[in-house]
Simulated assay, not measured.
Amino acid sequence: MAGHSKWSQIKRKKGANDKRRSAMYSKHIRAIQAAVRSGGSGDPGGNLSLKNAIAAAKADTVPVDNIDNAIKRAVGAGEGAADYKDVTYEGYGPGGTAIFIEALTDNVNRTVADIRAVFNKRGGSLGTNGSVAWQFEKKGVILLTDRSEQAQEVAIEHGAEDIQESDEGLEISTPPTELYAVQDALASAGFNIESGQITMIPSNTVAVTGDDAKKLMVLLEALEDLDDVQNVYSNADLPDEE
């Protein structure tokens, strides 16, 4: 879920219980294997989709052995392996929030039916293509456990677009194509990177509180729990107490 604080997003995912963590790992493994097959290579150096999938998996603490095994299985898979397709869906949640969903599926009819059912049950509505996508922009986001001027200078020098300070460190925004250049430069300079991955950032946020905030969180988590759903983003600005 994008919006308000990327630090909150990362921490919430890392704090998931064992059942949700297992499901989350499975989604990352599927994304890695799909990236290998679509990119035609198990080498992230020559397969940007795979590199992005690996970065996202590592951000959610998927063990390196699991990642390596997923790549090996995908490289060795022949005909008959599941053919997954990247699809996106858009909708609306409580409080007038916009929701953007990325999914990876081998059965589009099943996926859209599952997503529509969650929206209908949880107080939201599934929109048409383009209904809310214009409110989000794909960006690289790096979370850095350092707020020094030197770290900011290195990031800007290598392509960072925006830098926000938080209590935990820096939130660095980059064009998707410059994410790894900035990340590698920071790592080479000795800075500790909490996370670096491609995400969707809302152009504007909507403040959501009280009952609407609770309903929205239930809706977003129900969408995230669907097997085919990889990522769920919203433009909600949720206060920390919510």
Rank of each mutant, 00 (worst) to 15 (best):
A117W: 03
E149W: 09
S125W: 01
V87C: 01
A82L: 11
A213G: 09
Y180V: 05
R30F: 02
G42R: 11
Q197K: 14
S8A: 15
E165C: 00
E221A: 12
E224R: 14
S125N: 03
K121E: 15
K58A: 04
A53N: 08
A59K: 10
E241G: 01
L238N: 05
I142V: 12
R110G: 03
A70E: 07
A34S: 15
A103E: 07
I156W: 10
Q197W: 07
A70P: 04
A103I: 03
E79T: 10
P94M: 10
A189M: 07
M200D: 12
K72A: 15
A2G: 15
D83I: 12
E168K: 13
A16I: 01
E168S: 13
D237E: 15
E168I: 01
K58H: 09
A151D: 06
V36Q: 05
I201C: 04
E161M: 12
A35Q: 08
F119M: 09
A16C: 01
E149N: 13
D227F: 08
D65H: 08
A160D: 04
N66H: 13
E157A: 15
S26L: 14
D240I: 14
Q197N: 07
A55V: 00
M200V: 07
P63T: 05
T105Y: 08
A53R: 10
I10C: 02
L143C: 05
A70K: 08
G78A: 09
G140Y: 08
T111K: 12
I163H: 03
K6H: 14
I32M: 14
E90N: 06
A155C: 02
L220N: 02
S41E: 09
E161G: 00
N17A: 09
G124C: 05
P176K: 13
T61F: 10
N204W: 05
V208E: 04
I99N: 04
F136T: 03
K121M: 11
F100W: 06
A117C: 02
W134I: 00
Y84L: 15
V206D: 02
D184V: 00
I172E: 09
G124A: 05
I54P: 03
P63Q: 13
Q197S: 11
E153R: 15
A222K: 12
G190T: 08
A81E: 15
I10E: 11
F100Y: 14
K215R: 15
T199P: 01
G93Q: 06
A117T: 11
G91E: 02
N107L: 04
I10A: 10
A31W: 01
R110V: 05
T177A: 09
G80Y: 10
G46Y: 09
N66L: 15
Y92T: 06
K138T: 13
A187M: 07
E168L: 10
K11Y: 03
F119G: 06
H28Q: 13
E194W: 00
A133V: 04
